[in-house]
Design a protein around this nucleic acid. Structure first.
Lengths: 193, 193
DNA sequence: AATTAAACGGAACAATCGTTCCTGAATAAG
DNA sequence: CTTATTCAGGAACGATTGTTCCGTTTAATT
């Protein structure tokens, strides 16, 4: 029989996420991928098809990783407002720590490709939909527990939260390094919850 | 002496804004520019230098056009909160009307290029700085007139407003066509002012 | 009318793009 | 040992990229 695969496909995908995230789709060349993933050109194309498919798979994997993390945090949480606050604080920390500011892979891809690539558009929409659902359920839970104001519907607040999350990631991608700017936004957002 | 210019440089820049806005920097080829601007390759390069310089000039022109419009609206306004609301409503309308969803040229460029091109990064930062100033002054004015809550500092609210504006433009770029989503966000934002 | 500088169309440039293909070595199971 | 499959490496593909150059046309000034 044949030789077994020597590299882990998921690990390779993680490397692909890194470089696509950093450089974007159009900014990443085939040579970049070969160098960064540590695979030969042939292995790369045999395994993933072409650049577009590799990108699509990378974005899907990124989506799942992030959604799972957020969903688990909120499901487990006994004080949803605090957990949401922690999620935002973490986003701020990442935005400031990251020497090469990458923002959010989903936001970046959405801006660069969603209107030109139907596959990517589908992923972006699926992500928005799921995140809205996750946030809505979380807000409902928080409202029932008395941690979050009932002045606005859960869905409205969920969309509001998601919108500010996107905005913060754009700020990060733009290279904002002043912590006070992020903190001010977070403060304003959570004064509404 | 020499022949006079037959095309209007600013009109050509407006055409450049259109196509760069739609396709992004990397997505726009030299041929795209020749076709869309209606200039010959040689005239284009003689006039604007190279692609990067043309992009940079386009973005600067876009920035000035938008800043001037917003600044004038807010300076003239007698009820800043209502004017801000109108600005957001207008952004929503544009997001929904635009058959080819373009989002915001500044946000798009920021995400695509700010971390890889110092010239663009400078323009983005200058834009953020100016918009923050414009919004801060507007909020102050609204707070003094009693139209906007004084619970949060003007600068905090200004950054908060700007962040949600960015978020909405990302939504638009991602192809969101459900008016309710935008309206919900605007409702939440203005419930805080 | 002669001069001069700009605008033009289009050919041509080298470089890079994503992708395919080939060779030979490596490694597993039969 | 044979066979099957995957690996790496690199040559090569045509297409497209951004850019330059050149010869011609155009029009304002002297």
């Amino acid at each position: 029989m044949a030789r077994t695969k020597e590299f882990n496909e998921d690990q390779a995908l993680d490397k692909a996420i890194e470089i696509f995230w950093h450089k974007g789709y159009n900014g990443t060349s085939a040579q970049d991928l070969v160098t960064h993933l540590g695979l030969s050109r042939s292995s790369l194309y045999d395994t993933f098809g072409d650049k577009q498919k590799l990108f699509s798979k990378s974005l899907q994997r990124y989506q799942q990783q992030n959604q799972d993390a957020v969903k688990e945090l909120l499901d487990k949480s006994e004080n949803v407002k605090e957990t949401l606050h922690a999620i935002f604080k973490q986003a701020v920390i990442e935005s400031l720590e990251d020497r090469i500011t990458k923002g959010c892979f989903m936001v970046n891809s959405s801006v660069e490709l969603a209107m030109h690539d139907e596959d990517i558009a589908k992923i972006v929409k699926s992500n928005s939909h799921t995140m809205e659902e996750v946030f809505t359920n979380a807000v409902k839970k928080g409202q029932e527990a008395g941690h979050i104001s009932k002045q606005l519907d859960a869905k409205i607040l969920a969309r509001f939260i998601f919108n500010n999350y996107s905005g913060i990631r754009v700020l990060a991608r733009a290279g904002e390094r002043d912590k006070q700017v992020y903190d001010d936004i977070v403060k304003a957002v959570f004064s509404l919850l």
